[in-house]
């Protein structure tokens, strides 16, 4: 007697997830659902843009003051350029700026006593998003902790991990208190 043969179900094809690190001064855009963009931010700011209709997204990573050191307007021109590169990359993949949704991360105060470059970066990014009329769907800016941000460009999902001790910038306690905030799904 022949054994009955069950039809074989097709094995699911799972593409290997691709992790792309976006370093300072660079950007990356993608419509690939297997791509995850990641970066580590101190006082730098990262903009994560997403077009939910086109399924396109991208991330940049910039720092205003240290890039130019020639005053506020030079710094802003650098920031606007960093944003423009990301936007143009998105448009080339079929995104439309009227559908842009933005998430902003970073801008921490990493060293007490120095000028708050992180706050300048965060302020610039928030004003840029508002001026250009993009929808701000989430942000985590400021504080004193470095962040690792992960962003899935095709879905627009983002999460961050705060991986540095939260300490007051002005008057640190005698015994530093480590706060492990773990991995936090934000949006």
């Amino acid at each position: 007697m022949m054994a009955s043969r069950l039809p074989m179900a097709a094995a699911p094809t799972l593409a290997t997830p691709q992790k792309i690190n976006v370093i300072q001064g660079e950007y990356h855009v993608s419509a690939d659902s297997n791509v995850m963009l990641t970066t580590v931010l101190g006082s730098c700011v990262s903009t994560c843009l997403h077009d939910p209709v086109a399924g396109v997204g991208g991330m940049n990573h910039f720092l205003l003051a240290e890039q130019t050191g020639r005053g506020t307007e030079d710094a802003m021109r650098y920031g606007a350029y960093a944003m423009e590169m990301l936007i143009n990359g998105m448009l080339k993949l079929g995104a439309r700026r009227e559908r842009f949704q933005a998430k902003l991360f970073g801008g921490a105060r990493m060293m007490a006593g120095l000028s708050d470059v992180g706050a300048d970066n965060a302020r610039f990014a928030l004003k840029f998003i508002e001026d250009e009329g993009f929808v701000l769907t989430g942000h985590s800016l400021g504080g004193t902790a470095a962040r690792r941000v992960e962003f899935w460009p095709s879905s627009g999902r983002a999460r961050q991990r705060l991986n540095v001790a939260e300490e007051p910038a002005a008057a640190p306690p005698k015994v530093p208190v480590k706060v492990d905030l773990g991995e936090v799904e934000l949006f």
Binding site: E73, R77, A80, M83, E84, R97, D131, E132
Partner: peptide, 13 residues
């Protein structure tokens, strides 16, 4: 320029 921010910066310059 399609970016308001960039137009403002060029105007200021």
């Amino acid at each position: 320029d399609d970016q308001l921010t960039m137009r403002a910066l060029v105007r200021s310059g």
